[in-house]
Amino acid sequence: MSDNPQSFNPDTTDLDRLHPAVKREKADVESGTEQAPMWVIFLGFIVAIIAGGQLGPNVGGFDFNVSNPFASSRFPDPRPVDGTAGAALDPLQMAMKKGAATYALCGGCHQGSGLGVPGAFPPLAGSDWVMGGTERNIRVVLHGLQGPIKINGADFAAPAPMPPQGAVLSDQDVANVLTYVRNNWGNKGSLVTKEMVAAVREKEKARTAPWTGPELEPYAKAEVAAEPAK
C-alpha cells in the first residue's frame, strides 16, 4: 500500500510506484570502528615477505637493457641423457619414442595392439612382412598397398587398401615408425634410418600407384644398405 504524501496529487505517479520498495529498505548503520585484528597484520607481513622474494636478482639491477638477469648463467641441462655425458640420445630409443607418437596415424587400422583386424587389416605384431626386408616395408609405407596378400601364411583376400603415407610423413618419421613397429610387441627387429628411407624414396620417385603383393615379392627379404647414422 503506498503512502499518500501531501506534496503529490492522488494520481499514481512513478514515485508512488517506486515508493513501497524503497520504504522497506533498511537504514544504513554506521560501520564498525574496531581495530583490525593482530593476526591480519601478521599474515600481511608474511605475504609481504613472499612478495619481496619476487624481487632480488629478478630485478636485474633496474637496467632497461637487461631483459634476463640470468642470461650469462649456465643452467644444468634438465633433459634426460642416456649413456655417457655429452652423447646424443640413443638413436634407437629416440626412434622408438617418436615412432610411438607417429604410430597414432596407423593405429586406426592396425590397432594399438598391433594385431590388426582379421580379414581386413593385417597384424604387425609377429608379422613376417614386418620382420622381413626393409626394402618392402619402406615401400609399403611410402606408397601404400592394395590387393590380396598373405601374412604369416594367412590370406588377406580382400583387405582394405592401405593409403600411402609418403606425402604426409618425412623420411625421419617413416624411419621412426618402422623402427617402432619392428621393435615393439615382442618383435625383435632392427633400426631403420632416414637415409634408408630417402634412398628408397629416391629410387621409387616415379611411383604413384600403391603396391600389390606380387610386385613386392622381390623385396621380401631385401635390406636397404644402412649407412652409418651421423
Binding site: N65, S67, N68, A71, F75, R79, G86, A88
Partner: peptide, 13 residues
C-alpha cells in the same frame, strides 16, 4: 635435429 649443449637464448627487448 640434434641436441644442443646450450639452451636457445631468451629473447631481449
Amino acid at each position: 635435429e640434434g641436441r644442443t649443449a646450450e639452451p636457445v637464448r631468451s629473447n631481449t627487448l
